[in-house]
């Protein structure tokens, strides 16, 4: 099955592409809405600001293409800001609606630790949650760069702690999101990508 990587200008697409190819993905990198709408397996990357990423999706009709693909039964993995885009709403610089594919809201980290979080953090799978994505790395350490995150999201499958618990990964039906950077998380990150790529 071909994996379709959404070629967002507000993402480090090259790094994720390289990591996906390394774990055996047959990759199509595109920003064509039709190709995205017809994809069976989608990866939505993102770095930087939520609002810039969301604007780009809307202006290029990629938001509706993603919805169409999901409605057709495609699986989807959001990475970092791509993960945040899956939620209902983000409170980064005002309030911006996301894709609404998973439930919950994205907030700025509160508490006393320096923001952004830059570095490795331990990710704990939720008790009884879906382990598809984390098979083999159920208690892994992953690399994060983020100032915002969801917390206690209803679709949370894994969490981490940064001055308080936050949602490290979500899953709803065939939609997955990871707040960390699997492409920078060495073997554990590659394992997560492999789990997604080989999942049917």
């Amino acid at each position: 099955m071909i994996t379709t990587l959404i070629d967002s200008p507000v993402a480090n697409v090259a790094n994720i592409a390289r990591a996906l190819r390394t774990v055996g993905a047959e990759l199509q990198v595109t920003r064509d809405p039709d190709a995205i709408a017809n994809a069976e397996k989608l990866v939505l990357p993102g770095v930087g600001s939520f609002i810039a990423a969301m604007c780009w999706l809307e202006e290029n009709r990629i938001d509706s293409a993603i919805h169409a693909a999901v409605a057709n039964g495609a699986s989807l993995l959001g990475v970092c800001v791509g993960h945040q885009l899956l939620f209902d709403v983000s409170h980064e610089m005002g309030t911006t609606a996301g894709l609404g594919l998973v439930r919950g809201e994205v907030h700025k980290f509160e508490g006393s630790l320096p923001v952004p979080q830059i570095g490795w953090n331990r990710v704990q799978c939720a008790e009884g949650g879906d382990r598809t994505l984390f098979e083999g790395v159920e208690n892994g350490v992953f690399y994060f760069v983020n100032s915002y995150a969801a917390s206690n999201a209803p679709d949370e499958i894994a969490r981490a702690d940064y001055g308080g618990p936050f949602t490290a990964a979500v899953q709803r039906d065939r939609i997955f999101g990871v707040q960390f950077h699997p492409e920078k998380s060495s073997a554990a990150g590659l394992r997560v990508l492999r789990n997604f790529v080989s999942w049917t």
Binding site: S112, G119, W120, N121, D161
Partner: peptide, 19 residues
């Protein structure tokens, strides 16, 4: 230092690995 911050930092001292 702030008392609250110190207490928060030791609440999960082993979550974040040193590099």
């Amino acid at each position: 230092m702030q008392l609250a911050e110190a207490r928060a930092r030791v609440a999960t001292p082993n979550a974040i690995p040193e590099r």
